[in-house]
Amino acid sequence: MEVTRRTVLAASTIMGFASAAQAQRPEPQPLAPDLVAAAKKDGKIGWYTADDLVLATKVAKAFEAKYGITVQLERSGAERIYQRIAQEYASNISEVDVATTSDVGHTVSWNANGWLTPFIPAEVTKWPAQAIGSNGLYIVDKFTLVTPGYNGRLVKAEDAPKSWNDLLDQKWKNKLVKAHPGYSGAITNETLALSRTLGWEFYEKLAKQGVLQVQSATDPPMRTAQGERAIMADGAENTSNRLIMEGAPLVLIYPPEGVPVVAVGSVVMKRSQRPNAAQLFMHYLVSPECQAINVANGARSFDPSVTEPANWTHLSKIKLLFNDPNDLAKEAEEIKKRYTKIFGV
């Protein structure tokens, strides 16, 4: 019955995350008072996250301040974190309690490996259905977009590119900066979505534009804001939003061909040595307090109680491109390989 209600809800929204029915969907757990005490006994929590460094640091600090539980923060690109967890598990190291990835395809393979204890904090049930990914495998505690953009000091608005294809214009040669799908889950999302929408020719042509190839999706907004490159071919919208709020001369572009959506999923690992702290942290991730931090740092939230700043482009005005987590899981390797072949690194 619950399922039906959510499915209806999902259909009624502008969002369209896949939520294929699966049998093992766990019961949502309310934040029980004794969980806090148990979590404090665990003492600390290992959080491997692909979130923007500034955002992740603030969330970790706020959690530590609220509960006195140390967050051991491991921040890297989603694809790096994926590799790191695999490598550590192969050596019987289980430092990670909660993983937050911007490539939710990872949760599919982790689940297939039996590495997850699906956990849904009850707070999420008040959110749109898409906040619970893959029928309960993970929770989408925030999401963001991958957009192009430009430095407003270096490029006039009327000259600026308006679409993905505009990036291929000769005049932007050597003026582009771009992140890497081998590192960033956001860019993996983008590459999957755009290679389907625009075809691989788009990337083959882009590769001839002499892009400055950085790793993290959070890096192009910074390099563009610095003026190192006039245009970012892609970048995490949340980091861009944050920099713009800080006064950076960055202008985002929402191309009419569509904008890839990046669901940022969080999971509790089955091998977690500190399961109570992990669950408490999951509760915290979806708390209004944490959601406010997310939005204040540029990320988008499902929490209906949190309002986005007025100057953000509203989702309804953007053509959104979604990826199925299973597609991500299936195709990510091939995408990265092909990308590397095209761009040389």
Binding site: A86, G182, V211, Q213, E333, T340, G344, V345
Partner: peptide, 16 residues
């Protein structure tokens, strides 16, 4: 946009 040998070896340690 290019590799040297050490970065290439390192990249072979990315997943898988």
């Amino acid at each position: 946009g290019f590799h040297v040998l050490t970065t290439k070896i390192w990249s072979l340690f990315q997943f898988p």
